[in-house]
Amino acid sequence: MSWKPAVLSNTFHHGRYGDPRRLLELKEARGATVSLAFPTLNEADTIGKEILVLKAELMERFPLVDEIAVIDSGSTDDTRTIAARFGARVFGSRDILKPYGTFRGKGENLWKSLFVLQGDIIVWIDADISNIGPKFVYGLLGPLLERPEIGYVKAFYERPLRSTSGLTPSGGGRVTEILVRPLFSLFYPELAGLVQPLSGEYAGRRRLLERLPFSVGYGVEVGHLIDIYHQHGIESLAQVDLDRRVHRNQPVEALSRMSFGILNTFLSRLERYGEAHLLRKLAAEHIALAARKGRYSVQPTAVPMNERPPMVEIPEYAARFPRPVPAAAASVGASAAPTPAAEAPPGT
């Protein structure tokens, strides 16, 4: 079989973008502005280093990034204090777009960040990376600055896990290999060409991101990929090898809840795009079992499964980022709200 996913043609190594002066020239030539944001919840151990290193390198030495912000879900540790101490703008997720309420979840923070960030290009980085370096940002920015047809870039890497016995050389991506890759292989073989579709580091153009609905919880990455695939085609996706990412390990119980949220988003997308039809409503709670003294009990957990509409459909956003109304707006999901859309999205 000679077929290979098209996204492999848009697969790069961060070293290709290791010359910051070249990227700076590209950024200036395109007249682009770049925002970097961290969604956080109790990340005091790692957030300070991430902000300091990226700010020193990519704002002060080479001004590739125009602003750094933290969107916090209500940390109870020193995350917010430390983030502010090292120069990030800190927002509480619940304080953004207050009339629309708040949900707990990473996707919620990402969606709300679109409202407070100013850049044309948005870079999102998880706040639990122990070995942060500038490549995490310039690797993601490179394809967007270099190739106008690319609208969304995902990171992939070798993922040694931090554990009590030190660093385990690999073993990350269990949910990807057991759940997401089989699903993509069945329904979207082109997306199976993504090495780590669930990686928490990605960047995109505002004009593409503002048209995407956002799952507030674990399904946000899968939802983005399927929506972008349908709206803009596989050619608008790229992936970048960042070599190595050290992060803390997640217990199997957490991965099970994560899979529940991802599967929910996946199934909702199948239905939305007419690729499968669900005959009954899905359950809202993840069910785990606990054993104590020979007895088993059920532990239901509500996993956030709400979905935010494309940000362009929020009037406050439209007022803040006014755009000319296009002849035909292309946005996923029905909406009665007017769509102050921008120029044609990339890849179309």
């Binding site: 790692t46 300070g48 300091l52 204090t81 430390i82 050290v246």
Partner: peptide, 11 residues
């Protein structure tokens, strides 16, 4: 040490 030399930053 690959693990212990990873730096943590407090305020």
């Amino acid at each position: 040490s690959p693990l212990d030399s990873l730096v943590r930053l407090s305020s």
